[in-house]
Design a protein around this nucleic acid. Structure first.
Lengths: 345, 345
DNA sequence: TGTTAGCACTCCACATAAACGAGTGCTAAC
DNA sequence: GTTAGCACTCGTTTATGTGGAGTGCTAACA
């Protein structure tokens, strides 16, 4: 026992401990392992090994004379092994039924619901962000004597509307001119390219109608901001009540509040999207998570991609003793189907 | 004591009991009342009266030798008195800060958040339903070689967009014609007036482009359906953890799930909107509620109205021992402000 | 040297009991 | 009709005891 590396036996024992704990949720003792594994070792020997494993930080004793439970490090070891093993195995899980719908919003709501129901954990999904998209099309139209409607379309066919109040009645020609002005100048530009210089130039050309230009640009800005902000859908938050270790008032309240606010979840989205070694699926165990409220949970996230390089994030949040294998599989299956749906669209 | 009517003294005592219980949340005993009120009665006398009140069903003993707590009937009595008294008193509560925003959705999200934060209860608000609204405006525009965008505006400036795929490239003139066709035929019609006859007439006139008309009409239909369905916003669901009587796993889970699903809340909306003696504000105590999950709660709802007869519902959900006075006031203040915001628009 | 049986020890979980106290209902006196 | 007094009830808290699961350690064994 060199104290640094896990030999094969220790590995087996550690896996047995974690496996058993995932099933029962109870601290697991040496005698259990002695029978549970095919190592044919007495409980005493196991005890010695467990003592070592504890020293190495893989397992923890809640108190003297209780069994051991996995530490975050233990979980990490366990998960890493699964990820290695299963990287190639194509999951043959039954298809999660997702119907194609024409509105992205509906698809996502469906996805997140399916995910939550299938895993019995909480689930979230962020709408893809459109940062680097180009403006496709702007249209102003008269709606009322004192109101005009601005429609802004960016690549990916994201549409934003804004009603603009005008004090005087604009005639058709003026609107036509404004339309022309806006479209010839802005179409094809990425949202970053519409900078201050461009804006003031536009306003100048618009003359007395510069305020309308302002408002239209507001709408354009909003088209980003909102999506950027918190287009996040969640489902199954109440699933956490199925796991006693998360059910006490304090923790439950904090967690569920996180899901209700949705804001904090964007941290998770950021983190996931900015993953360097983008393997597609990531697991955050306990304190590894970027969202403080989830420090007693494990979080599985993945990035899905739409045709034009826009990506969104999908996540499962459950107790640390979640069924990683099943959850990872569910995630993969879902990703495959999302690809199907979106790429075909 | 005739056993049917509450004399003045009983009324005072009952109010004292309820008042005290609302503050402390603990069963209240005779001695407390003896001191709490200005009746100058000994605890023994109070006990006799309380015994009567219990027999009449206004209060309940959780167990022998505990104080009394209000029954649903007791709460009902209490609330009815408040409603009578305060019907006229203009609430001079500090304004709840609501900023006017151009998008209805944002206003409502803001409203519900403010309400939840101010009351420390859970809050919900339903978007107004647009049944009887008239179509204001339809616009088709070319977005791509194979896609056109349909924008539908109904009264109240609700805007719906739909991207329509077309196989062949439509020229400008065709689109202009279609626009003309749709607008001249449909503008000003209520959504109910667009019936099958109208539809087939349109399709006929559209000739080979009848499928586009179909899709546009789908968008129109959708403009209703979605709003009708469950445009319900909620906030502060986790506030229920502030009240121990609602915080145990079972109840909390059920309640919060109701808020997450949102669907069940539409019951509440229906019920509120279909109130015959429409006084504006309603209170459901315990089992009076139409939503089963809230049988241990009290619910305050109100109907707000937009200019053109569209109405939506607003609600507060809290423990039965909620601060009715404050909550009712908050509700009234909010209604006034909503009126301000919407009527001015 | 690694493995195992045996044993004392620890500590949680659970049950039981005791003390407490808030509050009641009833009776008798005012 | 009101009140003081008192026995009684019952939930809450605190103390106490017991059982059992599991450990660490030691000594014996292969």
């Amino acid at each position: 026992m060199n104290g640094l590396e896990l030999d094969e036996r220790k590995t087996k024992i550690l896996e047995a401990i974690i496996g058993n704990y995932l099933e029962t949720g109870e601290p697991v003792g040496s005698r259990t392992i002695s029978k549970y594994t095919d190592l044919n070792l007495s409980s005493a020997t196991i005890r010695n090994e467990m003592s070592d494993l504890e020293e190495m930080g893989y397992i923890i004793q809640p108190h003297t004379s209780a069994g051991r439970i996995p530490s975050d490090k233990g979980y990490r070891f366990y998960v890493d092994r699964i990820m290695e093993d299963k990287e190639k195995t194509v999951s043959e899980m039954k298809d999660l039924m997702i119907e194609k719908a024409d509105k992205m919003e509906l698809v996502l709501k469906q996805v997140v619901k399916v995910l939550a129901n299938n895993t019995n954990y909480a689930a979230m999904v962020s709408a893809p962000s459109y940062h680097r998209n180009k403006l496709k099309f702007i249209q102003l139209s008269q709606v009322d004597t004192e109101q005009i409607l601005a429609v802004v379309v960016v690549e990916g066919n994201i549409v934003k509307n804004k009603i603009i109040d005008v004090r005087e009645n604009l005639d058709n020609e003026t609107i036509l001119k404004l339309n022309m002005l806006l479209n010839t100048n802005l179409n094809g530009l990425s949202l970053e390219e519409i900078n201050l210089g461009m804006i003031s130039k536009l306003k100048e050309q618009a003359g007395i109608h510069s305020d309308i230009v302002s408002e239209v640009l507001d709408a354009v800005a909003e088209a980003i901001r909102i999506d950027d902000d918190l287009e996040i859908y969640t489902s199954g938050a109440t699933n956490i009540f199925k796991y006693p270790e998360l059910s006490d008032s304090e923790k439950a309240s904090e967690l569920i509040n996180t899901f209700e606010e949705k804001k904090p979840l964007s941290e998770l989205v950021q983190e996931t999207l900015s993953d360097e070694n983008n393997t597609g699926i990531q697991v955050y165990i306990g304190n590894e998570t970027p969202v403080q409220a989830m420090k007693d949970c494990s979080v599985i996230t993945a990035t899905y991609e739409l045709e034009e390089g826009m990506q969104g994030t999908i996540g499962i949040i459950g107790p640390k003793r979640m069924d990683y294998e099943k959850s990872l599989n569910a995630m993969k299956t879902l990703m495959a189907q999302l690809d199907n749906i979106f790429k075909k669209t």
